[in-house]
Design a protein around this nucleic acid. Structure first.
Lengths: 129, 129
DNA sequence: CTAGTTGCAAAGAGTTTGCATGGCG
DNA sequence: CGCCATGCAAACTCTTTGCAACTAG
């Protein structure tokens, strides 16, 4: 799996990287890559592969039943908690030290080992307030 | 909307309340209520209504594409952050004071207004460690 | 009685899969 | 050249909806 580097795979990854602060639906991606000749099945297959890799992750937004995808393989993401604005959909990275403190507090207060890579804090960002 | 109290609606709410610490799929619910003669459409319609009410919420779990539902209208839920174990799927309530402190810290550190009702912290609970 | 609610079955939306073709290495 | 990946279309799964029958108030 993931042995060849095809133009579809590259186009997908590039697009996800370029929009790492946004949450994207398959439709968003498909629309953006249709001009590059990337089929829907290629998108689905590659998204699944990338997700098992941990290169991207699946996110939900507020009251929708929709699934959003987001790149999370960048350096900024490593060990940082994600803050997702439910208004604009943008993602922010919590400061590394603050993340550590928070995770530590949760462990101490609730005896709960926080999975930083899988947790998203929802709320309103400073721009949208 | 939600004007009458039907036996289907009551059965659904009772079931959700009785399993407020679990995350349930529509299949789980349907299976459990089939003996009470609750149809799938009734479940879907009532879940939607309850969700807009804020009585229940939609949750995702780890690597699945599945949608889970969970009762969140109980007193325990009000103002408390939810901790969801990605191993057993159980939900825990973070202490009220700890929740407040955490929300306050996030606001101070990242200028981000945490939506406590919509945020779920994922990780491993003490039982599963 | 009257309007909200249900069940059924059909329609829709989103995702996955089989198979032949095409392209990376 | 061999094997993985792609595209297409069909198959599937999950959810929504129209409509007639039912029922709570």
């Amino acid at each position: 799996m993931q042995k060849y580097s095809t133009k579809q795979r590259r186009a997908l990854l590039d697009y996800l990287k370029d929009h790492a602060d946004e949450t994207l639906t398959v439709d968003d991606i498909s629309r953006a890559l249709s001009s590059d000749g990337v089929s829907r099945s290629a998108i689905y297959r590659n998204l699944s592969a990338l997700e098992s890799n941990g290169a991207i992750k699946r996110v939900t937004r507020n009251g929708t039943k929709k699934i959003f995808y987001q790149f999370s393989g960048c350096d900024d993401c490593h060990g940082h908690l994600h803050l997702s604005c439910t208004k604009c959909g943008k993602t922010f990275h919590m400061d590394l030290a603050a993340t550590e403190t928070l995770a530590h507090d949760v462990l101490r207060e609730s005896d709960f080992e926080l999975d930083k890579g899988n947790t998203v804090l929802y709320g309103i960002c400073s721009d949208c307030k």
